[in-house]
Design a protein around this nucleic acid. Structure first.
Lengths: 139, 139
DNA sequence: TTAAGTGCAAATTATTTGCAGTAAG
DNA sequence: CTTACTGCAAATAATTTGCACTTAA
């Protein structure tokens, strides 16, 4: 158990966040297995609940915001009704499955933007968000 | 007056929508001058109010949804908290000004995506949304 | 005349916040 | 100790909806 907890605790420490019980539990769900993950507050709340840890929904919201603020997570806006958070904080394209409202990574190496509009006078580009909306095909 | 109203009424008719007083007023604000426009429910509500026409906020919401459903408008998702609607329904990139929360068109001819990730098995690409987030530079 | 559209107020949904209690450094 | 964190319940904010009333066709 210590091996895994050390990993997530390092993740938290690297951003200067206190490793509280709830944050460790949430981080465990998020990056415990080393894979990238896309969550909403609700989905993370359910997942952490399934592990037996009790974390209030308000804390899930606050923690997601805190992780975002320190750069551990990236917020991705694809659906006006809920916020998605991505453990992969690099600029990369996403697939958004409209039927299931799921967000997944699109292979970044397959995307190539050759010419990007330049930022207007007095502005600079913060990020370039690419969302590829997918519809399920009937077969 | 008739010239302008004919234009917006044609716009409505082309989508098979009844030209009610409120829809005509809203369409007038949206496409009356022939320019493309990006609005939120609230901003459209204010703009139409400024013309003297009285349209309830609920109707603005319902109408925006109706216009979207029939393809007169395109919803653009850039900010989790509110919905934006674009009179330009072609697939094109956007600038999103983070400080003022304004949405504008990015010059489409300057964007070139060379390789797009292909849709996973059983799915097809609905649209590719490109949002370039801008931060104001201090000068 | 009649189905569709409108306005109001109440309901919903996702999210944030105030504050009293708890825990980490 | 003492400052940040947590949980609850109440507050917000954007949007939707139920329903009685209007209006376009």
């Amino acid at each position: 158990m210590s091996g895994i907890e050390t990993r997530v605790d390092k993740w938290l420490a690297s951003a200067g966040l206190r490793p509280t019980k709830q944050r460790t539990a949430l981080a465990q769900v998020l990056i415990g297995d080393g894979n990238h993950r896309h969550v909403t507050a609700e989905s993370l709340f359910e997942r952490v609940g399934a592990t037996g840890e009790r974390v209030s929904l308000a804390t899930v919201y606050n923690t997601l915001r805190a992780f975002c603020r320190v750069g551990l997570l990236q917020e991705v806006t694809v659906d006006g009704t809920k916020s998605y958070f991505d453990t992969n904080t690099h600029d990369h394209p996403h697939f958004y499955w409209e039927d299931t409202q799921e967000l997944t990574d699109a292979p970044a190496d397959q995307l190539k933007i050759v010419r990007l509009p330049e930022a207007p006078e007095g502005a600079e580009i913060g990020s370039v968000d690419v969302v590829i909306r997918l519809r399920r095909k009937f077969t």
